[in-house]
Amino acid sequence: MTKFILRRVLLGIIVLLGVAFITFFVARVVPSNPAAKWAGPRANPEQIAKATIELGLDKPLVVQFGKYLMDLFRGNLGNSLRTRRPITQELLESLPATVELVLLSTIAAVFIGIPLGVISAKRKDKLIDHLSRLFSIGAVSLPTFWIGLILQLVFFRILDIFPMGGQLSTEIKILMDIPKVTGFLIFDCLITGNFTILWDALWHIVLPGITIALYPIGLVARMTRSAMLEILNEDYITAARSYGLKERTVLWSYALKNSIGPTSTVVALSIGYTLVNTFLTESIFTWPGIGSYISSAVIGNDYPAIMGVTIFSAFSYVLLNLAADIIIALDPRVRT
């Protein structure tokens, strides 16, 4: 058990080093003139020379990589070309808005996707199975950014129920004191008991929330269905049924518990997809998170910022998977 976790953590460290190396390679070795990219599109020769020294481009690659690792270790991702501010700080500021969306869609994936998959497996080849499969395969085939635009078209332009974008209405932003405790808007409103703002915030998160959640719901439903189908054929399920246990207990307790391995793996995987989908949709909903940050970095050729988001997301994704693996390993059924 401890040995497994130790091994997994060690592997995680190797993977993190590898990720650092690939990002280093992409940013410093692939471009013909990395200093020019780093200094920005309108840099003069002086600034480029300064960037060369700053990045250590005049030194051998091994030394450069060492410096790169040291900077990463200290959490230094360089400065944004557009704002001249440290990227790490800007990322931390836009993190809560994105985490809110990712968390919401992960909750949706677990509480809608898993039951959908279980029911689908139980009623295999019945109408409800066909419908739920069609829904889930449709959900993973939809371009996320397109769904965002269509939702805006229908629910803002035509029906005028939901706001077009942003985290809060302009009136509220101007007239009221926005609570700032943890940075997570909805959570902050809850703990300060500020229900007017909370209501407004919830109203604003509906459309981006649906947009982002569709993909993970479909993915999790598909995976749960196939894991459940396999398990429902196992002998111990037949045994449980022949004991006369209620079908509900067999399904939701016996079978679902045993499919927790593949299901939690796919939930962790879906968080990765969700994170990237926020890159595609946040700018549509002017959601002030990491997605909007990287979209404007791409448009503004802000290479350090693009690289910063890449490294940051990749590292969090690796750590997340590590955590998922360790949690799964705590399950006695997986222990070897």
Partner: peptide
Amino acid sequence: DIFLSFPPLLLAIAISSF
């Protein structure tokens, strides 16, 4: 392992922007 530990699309975004 290392290549697959990037969230999907992320590496493609980084590479094509550079």
